[in-house]
């Protein structure tokens, strides 16, 4: 892994609380949160603008759902590294997202260590 600079992450979740949690975990573990988005449209726009190293993407959002956002981002940038955030009982959606090119996924409720492990793995 390249340690020379912090990895830039875009955090996408409709719940401000979840965004805050992810942001805190990432900051403590030397990631840089370069942007946050509360819905799908905003996520796509921010991705274009920021071109982050990694996106954490919530599956369930009002408007565009996570899987659709994933497809749209990967249409624009096939090398985009995206990690889905899912809750229990969303297996089908997660499977769909992974088949759609998501690197990995993290479960809610978040276990900070697992989140960090997963994101590092996704960046390798």
């Amino acid at each position: 892994m390249d340690y020379s600079r912090k990895k830039r992450v875009l955090v996408v979740d409709d719940a401000a609380f979840m965004r805050m949690m992810i942001r805190d975990i990432l900051k403590k573990n030397n990631f840089e949160v370069v942007g946050e988005a509360a819905n799908g449209q905003e996520a796509i726009a921010k991705y274009e603008e920021l071109r982050p190293d990694l996106v954490t993407l919530d599956i369930t959002m009002p408007g565009l759902d996570g899987v659709t956002v994933l497809r749209k981002i990967r249409e624009r940038d096939p090398s985009a590294r995206i990690v889905m955030c899912s809750a229990m009982g969303q297996q089908a959606m997660v499977v769909e997202a992974i088949q759609g090119g998501a690197k990995d996924f993290i479960n809610k409720p978040f276990n900070p260590q697992k989140v960090v492990d997963t994101l590092r793995r996704a960046l390798q």
Binding site: S86, M88, Q91, V94, V95, I98, Q99, K103, D104, F105
Partner: peptide, 12 residues
């Protein structure tokens, strides 16, 4: 959790 999805990422 979500074993199918997890196994899929490993397989990939």
């Amino acid at each position: 959790m979500l074993k199918v999805a997890r196994m899929l990422t490993i397989y990939k």
